[in-house]
């Protein structure tokens, strides 16, 4: 394979990696603040895409046509809000499991994931659906000698913007400081007068909304199927394990690395590229010490 032939795969890998990073960031926010592994994260990723479909349906966008920019923007705003609402509902249920072995929370979110997936299947059917982005980001663009998907560039750029916005939120705002503090020491945060249950619900909503947005952005690349969730939550867990829980740039860099790996594998063995994530997960957990960036957490029990 020449380098030229490899480049599109690497670019694909990069764009997937950035989107994985987005999902992982939402995932690690939740793990950091609540020490809960949200297995429903993947189903919420899927729900984002499906709610966007619903918005399209409401706005009468045909499934085989292209939405206008404002229709797309509407979906991009409304659907994640719906996802956040469902996410916050899950958090409400999770409350009973706080303080118990984290496995209870895991089981609960696992159940939520399956219920969500089934609900999606009931409402929208088991077959693959199409979710399109506006026409002006579809099609090809010339990059030197190769033609590359315009959409993937758009998706990558969008992910980068969102990641940076998230960074600003976490590092530069009071809310971000509260989130970081809450992740580090929930008792002290309460003793400073901060309402921890509200904070947790907000973080869950924010984290799941990110997954929902990622689902919408990924949809034109991956397609929309009820069980697309697993292929999102496992990379998220993998990335957070490699990058370290609670590490912002750890998640971003690991996300990109995992994406590039998938891209490379797909260059040589396309069918098995998604499988590479699962194999990578097995290898990483098998050899795992403390991740590259982060510190130990309650998950190590």
């Amino acid at each position: 394979m020449t380098f030229e032939e490899l480049v599109p795969h690497l670019l694909n890998g990069l764009s997937i990696g950035l989107l994985f990073a987005l999902i992982a960031l939402g995932f690690t926010l939740i793990v950091g603040v609540m020490e809960v592994i949200n297995l429903a994260h993947g189903s919420l990723f899927a729900l984002g895409a499906y709610l966007a479909l619903a918005v399209y349906g409401y706005l009468e966008v045909s499934e085989f046509g292209f939405p206008t920019r404002s229709q797309y923007a509407t979906a991009l705003i409304v659907a994640p809000l719906g996802v956040a609402a469902v996410g916050m509902g899950i958090e409400l249920g999770l409350r009973r499991t706080y303080g118990k072995d984290p496995l209870y929370g895991l089981l609960f979110t696992f159940g939520a994931a399956l219920v969500l997936e089934e609900a999606i299947r009931q409402r929208w059917g088991p077959t693959e659906r199409l979710l399109r982005a506006p026409a002006d980001v579809s099609g090809f663009i010339e990059l030197g000698d190769i033609f590359y998907f315009k959409y993937r560039i758009f998706a990558s750029a969008f992910a980068v913007v969102l990641i940076l916005l998230l960074w600003v939120l976490i590092e530069k705002t009071q809310l971000g400081a509260i989130i970081k503090a809450g992740a580090h020491d929930s008792e002290m945060v309460r003793a400073l007068g901060i309402n921890l249950p509200v904070l947790r619900m907000f973080v869950f909503g924010l984290g799941t909304a990110l997954a929902g947005i990622a689902g919408i952005i990924m949809a034109p690349i991956w397609g929309v199927r009820p069980h697309m969730g697993v292929d999102a939550v496992i990379p998220a867990f993998l990335i957070v394990t490699i990058g370290g829980i609670g590490s912002f740039w750890g998640s971003v860099i690991s996300g990109i690395m995992v994406g590039l790996t998938v891209g490379m594998v797909s260059a040589y063995a396309t069918e098995w590229s998604i499988l590479s994530i699962y194999i990578l997960l097995i290898v990483v957990i098998f050899f795992r010490q403390r991740g590259l960036f982060g510190k130990a957490s309650g998950l190590d029990k």
């Binding site: 009071q174 400081a177 970081k180 503090a181 580090h184 020491d185 008792e187 002290m188 309460r190 003793a191 400073l192 007068g193 901060i194 309402n195 921890l196």
Partner: peptide, 27 residues
Amino acid sequence: PTHKIARAGVSWVPDDRRIFPSLTVAR
């Protein structure tokens, strides 16, 4: 709930201080 007690006017300086290490002093 603790946050309500804190808001009622009780402040705490624990023996391990519990400053948040990933934030600046100002934050």
